[in-house]
Design a binder for these strands. Sequence first.
DNA 1: AAAAAAC
Length: 559
Amino acid sequence: MEAFQLLSRGGAFDKQRFKNDVYLFSPAKSKHVEGKSSSKVDDGELPSELDFFKYAKGGTNKRKAANQNLQHEGKKQKTNHASEDEQDDDNGTSNSPLPKHRVTAKGSRVPEHVDVFEALTDRYQVPSRLLENLSNNGYNRPTGIQSYGIPILLESRDLAAISPTGTGKTLSYLLPIMAALGAPAASAKSDAGSGVRAVIVAPTRELAHQIHNECLKLAVGRKWRIILFSKSTASTLADKSVRDKVDIIVSTPLRLVSSLQAGNLELHNVRHLILDEADRMLDSEFLPQVQEITAACTHENVQKAVFSATLPANAEKIAMKMLRDPIRVVVGLKDTPLPLISQSLTYVADDQSKLPSLLTYLAQPYNPPVLIFTSTQPRASSLAEELVLNAIPNVDCLHAGMSKKEREDAVSRMRRGESWVMVSTEVMARGMDFKGVREVINYDFPTSVQSYVHRIGRTGRAGREGKAVTYFTDEDAPFLKTIANVLLQSGSSVPDWILKLPKPSKMKRRQMGKVKRLEIVNSARKIGRNDAVKKRDMIMGSKRRKQKAEGAQDATSDD
DNA sequence: AAAAAAC
């Protein structure tokens, strides 16, 4: 009976019900909203294409036009316009599945872009060995950010690169670094000076690990020392004569900072400093650490570059101050998901209704692996647990509260395709490239546009299609319109009534943030529990699990 | 908004 009630509350998209709840947020406008919505109920049922064109007229195009005008306003700066469409026409090879984006490059003396990787050898003497490694790894033609960004970095210029998720930003900075490195520091003919020459900083261990892997693939046949910085690798570099022979370090910020402070690392010889996921690296939590790192890079010719799919104005300001005579490259529209990702918003009345909705979803055919995002670590753990208890196969969990080994194991199961359902926190939201992910579910509503764009950007990578579903509850209403606009901007359709919601800024958002979200409410503790618990402990680690459970109980009793 | 992540 209980289960039936839960199911009947969750399930299908229920406009009517939500509409009533809108009153809660804007009593003054409630009649207006209701009147308009009910007279246009049919709009929501139009084919999605029609819906899109309708709203694109009002919002999307205006904004595009505004963007373009802004770009033309630069005074002393030169603007380059180009389009990947043209490049595709030139070449005639239509095996490029990548979406076609407008590219703008703004700054002084912008180097010309390249249409093919081979042009890099002619123009910049990029070693052919490097290009071989490219094609061996399946890189045939440069993406937008690669064709513009690589020449800029090869000309030793500073760069702020904004390009959508899954469009090859990593290669855009790795290739120029490797082209510029020359002989390994350890070799006799090196004129590299002493100390590491390139540093790449990323916000999570998993991402740093992935970048390091890419780095190794590209460096095949060369003897550079490329270090994924961790506690153990850092300790092997305690000996200065050893660390002076390192060429490239990939690291998370705090790891670098603690080595700097311990006097176990010098960055005075760094010629290339890359901030991946730049807006994250420049947010208030990471900024002090990043500043310490940049301050330690004292070489007069240090080249700095920042990369992200999103770069809010304040982060861009900080970035531009950091950079010297920078060039700003924007591929597509900033802070916007790929149109390849078909996005939808699903109403679930409240937190308790989410699990039944998800179970219903997972009971139908879906494309594994599915990546599910929750707002907190305990919620990720307990949701994974619930799915296991409900006999969903191959459930995995990954958050930063897990041990290093547990995290690594989870990632490798994911890479091997053994995970069908991966429940995670923001730790997985940025940069991670699991090529198979075709569906993302935002179980908990994202807390920013940036978070939304990066989360759903785990699918639709390298030209593949993807699907993203976002659950929203009554509590999420104040932020719904903001995210709905992002869907519109990227070509997904949104029901009429959502767009008619009052402006987010006018809503009472303060009181909304106070709702405490604890663990996923259990709906089905039944038979086979012991087996399920064993399996769960294998997935999440029993020790950690116990700690989490105790912590959560404390939190509950507080209430 | 606000939690997450970084050692």
